[in-house]
């Protein structure tokens, strides 16, 4: 097991936005964290990354309680644009290389070319779609055990979505785990191995997607409609 969330709870202004979430993340899998906006997906991811301090519970990473050193093996991609304004596409890669051991510069440059970006582009001039691609490329060019992608397919066109999914599928291996949070169920249904349904800060159900299809004869989208 690569990471575990044990009874993670977060309270904002008296309301539990994440409530007692326990989840085990096993290597070689792509997890879909599925639920409507505001159900606690982002806050859970931020607690796993160490950006948000939990009110209760703990994160176990690689068999030990989370410390800041785990950040070298946790690649988090926020849903918002987060690069520094002064950066160019090339300097984003340089930043990641400066801080993250094992950052694959060649992969980064290759993917940048493949998705139609240019190393000399300024990040503040990128369109929403271009920015979404750059975020995924920078994150997936890291060598990490846990990838947390928050809404990676939001606001981007069909072709860009396919490119992003290709990058995700290229990266998954037995030594890592990828968690994708989204409310665009149809977009991820074809490639996620596990579906985790969240609502009101709680995990409603967790499924192996293959088992779900074989035993219950339902698609993830069908089940999502039932549960939400």
């Amino acid at each position: 097991m690569i990471a575990e969330s044990r009874n993670l709870t977060k309270v904002y202004r008296g309301k539990q936005v994440v409530s007692d979430v326990t989840l085990k993340l096993r290597g070689g899998n792509i997890y879909g964290l599925l639920g409507p906006n505001g159900c606690g997906k982002t806050t859970w991811m931020k607690m796993m990354t160490g950006f948000v301090k939990p009110a209760k519970g703990e994160v176990i990473f690689d068999g030990a309680p989370w410390t800041y050193r785990a950040k070298s093996e946790i690649a988090y991609m926020p849903t918002e644009a987060f690069f520094y304004d002064f950066m160019k596409v090339a300097s984003v890669g340089k930043y990641y290389k400066d801080f993250f051991e094992g950052f694959d510069e060649e992969k980064y440059e290759e993917l940048v070319r493949k998705v139609g970006l240019d190393m000399d582009m300024k990040v503040r001039d990128l369109s929403t779609g271009m920015m979404a691609k750059l975020k995924v490329i920078a994150t997936m060019s890291r060598k990490a055990m846990l990838y947390l992608l928050d809404e990676p397919l939001n606001g981007i066109d069909l072709k860009a979505r396919e490119e992003i999914v290709d990058v995700i599928l290229m990266t998954v291996s037995a030594k890592n785990v990828i968690v994708i949070s989204t409310h665009l169920i149809e977009e991820v249904e074809s490639f996620i191995d596990n579906a985790v349904f969240m609502k009101d800060g709680k995990i409603l159900r967790e499924f192996d997607t293959e088992t779900l299809r074989m035993q219950e004869g339902k698609s993830i989208a069908d089940l999502y409609r039932e549960l939400m």
Binding site: T49, G50, F51, Y68, R69, A70, K71, S72, Y76, P78, E80, A81, F82, F83, Y84, D85, Y95, F99, F100
Partner: peptide, 12 residues
């Protein structure tokens, strides 16, 4: 949101 850039790095 640039806080992510600063705090995602593996430093305390």
């Amino acid at each position: 949101k640039q806080s992510y850039m600063l705090f995602m790095v593996p430093h305390s």
